[in-house]
Amino acid sequence: MKTAAYLRRFGISGRGLVVALPYLWLLLFFVVPFVIVLKISFSDIDLAIPPYKPLLEWVGKNSLAIKVDFNNYAFLFTDRLYINAFLNSIKVAFISTVLCALVGYPMAYGIARSKPATRNLLLLLVILPFWTSLLLRVYAWIGLLKANGVINNVLIWMGVINEPLTLLYTPFAMYVGIVYSYLPFFILPMYANLEKMDWQLLEAAEDLGCRPWQAFYKITLPLSRNGILAGSMLVFIPAVGEFVIPALLGGPNALMIGRVLWDEFFSNRAWPVASAVAILLLILLVPFMMWYQSVQARESAGAR
């Protein structure tokens, strides 16, 4: 009690702490790492520990020199590689998002319309894969897709094909992997949105002359717009930086910005350039994140 009173004298109260906690979290896990990465992105590469030069340096006795190197950023525009990688990542993320929406919407819809008891089971099944590591799951896909993998063997056994299909290390495999991995991120917000839906509206629409599909198109779809947007952002934003799945399932020609960043960091040991790529990626994604935020705000305000 005494300590509480003591803390309050400094304006620290339990409630204040609760409010401050998210900010503390953000500071610790977003702002600080971001500032560090930003700092590295402005420094010069060095063969040392750490492998970049400090921004601040004592020169002479009383003077502190700041050396900010913008070349790491300029460099990214000298070679088409980086632009192409960005564009390609966005393309892959976009296609993946569309596929996730096409697969995920009906699933979310089905779950939202099922009985409450089944609903929990279905949601559990959607989340279940998260209990296993992403890597293991992607490896499982390799087992399914490879030349003598499950899918090919089943197809050959059924007599559909004679020669194994080349599935693995193709864009197809990559999209399968991404869609599979990110689907829950679409389904969950989509479900949360559809679950709030007043299904009587569909009855009202049918009563006013809509066939079920018309009612879906005119009522359900526009009303679930925020859910679609939220789910899409949750898929799109991380998918832009996705690297593991294209690396494991896609062909070698899948040029992703995540891979380029990896190469910069590990192959070239160019931490500053890698950081610059990361910062640019962030800047690129900020508009999408802000959009997502506004969609979320609208969604929780309940206005459609």
Binding site: C210, I219, P222
Partner: peptide
């Protein structure tokens, strides 16, 4: 329902939240 010569006013109104009054009535 859409083939019955019947219209219903729902107890919970079931107004379409994304349409204004006019659009609701015109639906």
């Amino acid at each position: 329902p859409y083939e019955r010569p019947v219209n219903m006013m729902f107890q919970s109104y079931a107004l379409f939240p994304h349409m204004n009054v006019e659009e609701n009535v015109a639906f």
